[in-house]
Design a protein around this nucleic acid. Structure first.
Length: 234
DNA sequence: GCCAACGTTGGC
DNA sequence: GCCAACGTTGGC
């Protein structure tokens, strides 16, 4: 939904109450976030916590790099155009926008993990040429997504309350375009080759959880994708 | 426009 | 708690 959700327009910068960490049990599916990491009881923490590395802390990985999907082409959803490509981000005041409209628990939980200064790929989805168009950085950490309370908004959620907001957003700022557009098809070729060779993209979330609109990348994945910038396409 | 993948809902 | 039906995402 970030793709299905991202919309133009600055979000009001009002800061309401922090979303409680406690969430309704109906949200369990997403409550753990990418909670998946095996919880081996008693297993001692490998302690492999190099800065920036997807580290194993306790039972859950922490990430420092992300990929966020948004739709660069016009599409009407409940009478509202949800188009928001990287050019739209660049056009915002301070080239900064709130990442509203995320309505998936896993994606939301990743938004909550994001820290100021962290980098994310801006991915163009549901369009002629899907792929990575640029790089953005987190400039404000998770706070309530105001659009969940607005009945006219395509992502209005009647089941959420201001006392206990269900959905959050972060603010991101444009950093730069990638040196060249990196098409999904190209990433997929690497992913498939890496599944055999054991390369950096072998488990890339873009392919293992294809519908997730806000997703983490390991440092290795992020750097490998960056290395593709330098390649001339066939 | 088709449809695979997959998240959510609700009956039981 | 299972799982079929349904809805959404998003590539192609």
């Amino acid at each position: 939904m970030p793709s299905r959700g991202k919309k133009r327009g600055r979000g009001a910068l009002k800061d309401t109450k922090e979303p409680a960490f406690k969430v309704a049990k109906s949200e369990i599916s997403g409550e753990g976030g990418e909670s998946v990491p095996v919880k081996t009881s008693g297993e001692r923490n490998p302690g492999k916590t190099s800065a920036g590395e997807a580290s194993t802390k306790g039972t859950k990985k922490t990430y420092t790099h992300w990929l966020m999907k948004s739709e660069p082409e016009s599409r009407m959803e409940k009478g509202v155009d949800v188009k928001f490509g990287i050019e739209d981000l660049k056009a915002q005041l301070n080239q900064t926008a709130c990442w509203d409209g995320v309505r998936n628990y896993q994606a939301r939980n990743f938004l909550r993990e994001m820290k100021v200064g962290q980098m994310a790929f801006f991915y163009h989805s549901n369009c002629k040429e899907p792929g990575i168009a640029g790089i953005v950085k987190v400039v404000k950490e998770a706070y309530p997504d105001h659009t969940q309370f607005e009945s006219k908004d395509p992502h209005y959620d009647a089941s959420s309350s201001k006392e206990n907001p269900k959905w959050c957003m972060v603010d991101v700022q444009f950093v730069r375009m990638t040196k060249r557009f990196i098409p999904l098809a190209e990433l997929k070729l690497h992913h498939q080759a890496h599944k055999i060779s054991g390369g950096a993209l072998k488990d890339m979330t873009l392919f293992t959880r294809q519908r997730l609109s806000v997703q983490p990348l390991t440092v290795e994945e992020f750097e490998f994708v960056l290395s593709l910038e330098e390649e001339k396409q066939h």
